[in-house]
Every structure is written in C-alpha cells, then in structure tokens.
Design a binder for these strands. Structure first.
Lengths: 168, 168
DNA sequence: TTTTATTTTCAATAATTTTTGAAAGTTTCG
DNA sequence: CGAAACTTTCAAAAATTATTGAAAATAAAA
C-alpha cells in the first residue's frame, strides 16, 4: 500500500471509530491527520487535507486543544498558527480516558448516588430500585477507580500488571 | 424523592449517558425502564411509559435482545410478549463490554494491523507512520486483553485485583 | 494609526440519525 | 379455514447534530 493511501485509510477509520463512541467524526479526523503528519499543520493545510471549512477546522482544533491532545506550535517566519498532536499513544490514551471520565462518568456517578439515597419510600419496589442504583453505582465506582489508576500509570505498569493477572 | 420521580430521573440520565457514548437514547431508556421494573413489561407498557411508538419499541427491544441484555419472558394467560432485563449489574457491565469490544474495538484492531504492515515504503515518513500504527495497535491490544479478562471475571475478582493494584 | 492577515463566531443550511405509523406479516384461537 | 391479536417492517417525516461561510473580532505589520 502507498503511504498516502494508508494515511487516508487511517483517518477514515479513526473517524468512524469516533462516531461509534459518540465523538465528532471531524474532530477525530483532524487529530488523526496531525498524528500521522511529520510536521505541524496550519488551519489552511487541515482544510485542504480533509476538505472541510475554516470554521469547522477552527472549532475542532479548539476542542482538541481543550481535550489536551493537540497543541499550538510556533513556526519561525510564519504568522499563522500551526498545530501538532503528540505521538505518545499511551499518553493519548490516558488523556482521552481522563477527559471522558470527567465528562461522561463522574456526573452520572453523582446522580446515581443521589438516587440511591434520595428515595424515602421503603416499599419492596423502592428497595429493589435502591438496590439497582446501588449496584450501578458500585460497578461504576470500581471502573472509575481502575481508570484513575490507569491514568496515573505508565505503559509498562499496565502491561506488567495485566500479565500478572492473566497468569493467575 | 418520590420513587416514580427517581425512576424517571434514572431513565433520563441513562438516555443521555448512552447518547454521549454513541448508543441510541431510546434503546438505553427501554433498558433502564426494564431494569427498574419489578415485573416483565409488554410492548404496550413500554410505549405508554416512554411515550414512544410501537415501531420504536419493537426495534429497540430487538436490539437489546441482540446485545444479550434483555430477554423475553412468558406470562401465563397472556398472548403478547413480555420483556425483562436481568438485575445483575456486573453481568450487564460484562455483556455490554463484550459487545462493544466485538463491534467497535476488534474491527479497528484488524485495520490497524493491516496498516502497520501493509505500507511498503521505507522513507523516514513511512517509518514514523508505521510506528504510530504500531503503538496504536499495541495500546489497543493491551486494553482489549484487559477487557477480555474482565469479561471472564466475577465482580469479586475485579475488586480484589483492583485493591491490590491500588496498594502497590 | 491604518492596513492586512488571521482567527473566531454563529445563524443558516446540510447531513445524519431517529422516530413514526400504517401496511404487511405472523401467530394463535375458535 | 378465517378472524382476531399481536409483531415486524420500512418509507416518509421529524429531530438532532454537524458544517458552512461570511461578517465580526483580533493580532501583527506597515
């Protein structure tokens, strides 16, 4: 396969992966483009490469910066802004996990905790409900804690712990 | 809080959580409704509770059955079908993980593997690309393996391993 | 300061996804 | 078998989400 075709295939794949996880397709594609680029890219270059508008590039680049997975890079002799994505994939994974945890897990956990304790009723039915809320909260808290640990870990840690687990 | 209000709040919360993870809102709400119901529900009851059409109920209930988290239950003296969701939340978590892994992780892993080995080019640029694909594949494979382990585990296992990890 | 380059915003538009509802299909019962 | 009860399908409509593009804002250069 030709390098350019492989890059395009990767960018497409990343776009659909994002869609299936509730993330904007273009946002993922801009990130993918930067990730496989050997040099910082300007808004114009991103527009050209992905055939999207300036406004779209701007919004998605800002979102990526907000997620902490893309940053501005100054290029000598250039007035416009250039962007890069770090190539450390383990860091990328941790950062994405951290953001999703903050945005999409923790607020739900908060509501579950309210629900498990906020119902006064003591009927059989209410107890069943509270049990379900409690179990949802418990599993979610456990997963959340594991993700926390992963966020702080280095890749080697994860791999070695994983290997130990497997062997048990 | 009144039990009915708490149920409604939970159903709404689950719907938006689903949306943010790329899952149909109604599908999640039907599941949430069944999860907090103390008895099997018919299509008519689901329509009434969520104020949605028969077609919508049918499609989403089928999808939930396909995901393995809802099943039909026969009710004596009734001709129509009734549905239930198992209340074992750890099992639910494992089943959802299993399905998402199969649907949304493994196909991507396959493509990454093609990309990391399918580029003939040996330029500096091509090597950078292959390195990125390789790292993506490696992190994804590790995570996939951990999920595999979780799917096979019981809740106690996860909790105890997690506790051990934390202490290190 | 004025001009020019560049970035940002956001209302309008387009694309995508979800839902409806009625017709067709199926199953059960008399 | 034929009718009634129930389920499924899917084209059209509605709702949601994403994108455009031009005007406004900002920043740098002259």
């Amino acid at each position: 396969m030709k390098l350019e075709d492989a890059k395009i295939k990767y960018i497409h794949t990343w776009g659909s992966l994002a869609t299936s996880w509730g993330i904007n397709k273009t946002m993922a594609q801009v990130h993918a483009l930067l990730l496989v680029s050997t040099k910082p890219l300007s808004a114009d270059e991103i527009m050209e490469a992905l055939k999207i508008s300036r406004g779209n590039v701007n919004m998605n680049v800002r979102a990526l910066i907000d997620w902490g997975i893309v940053r501005k890079e100054f290029v000598v002799g250039e007035r416009k802004e250039f962007f890069v994505a770090d190539k450390d994939i383990w860091e990328l994974f941790k950062q994405v996990t951290k953001e999703r945890k903050k945005r999409e897990i923790e607020p739900v956990l908060k509501i579950l905790d309210e629900l498990k304790s906020g119902v006064e009723d003591n009927s059989e039915e209410a107890e069943t409900f509270k049990k379900v809320m409690n179990d949802l909260s418990s599993v979610t808290t456990t997963v959340n804690g594991i993700l926390d640990k992963a966020i702080k870990a280095d890749e080697h840690w994860l791999l070695s712990n994983f290997t130990k687990m497997i062997k048990k």
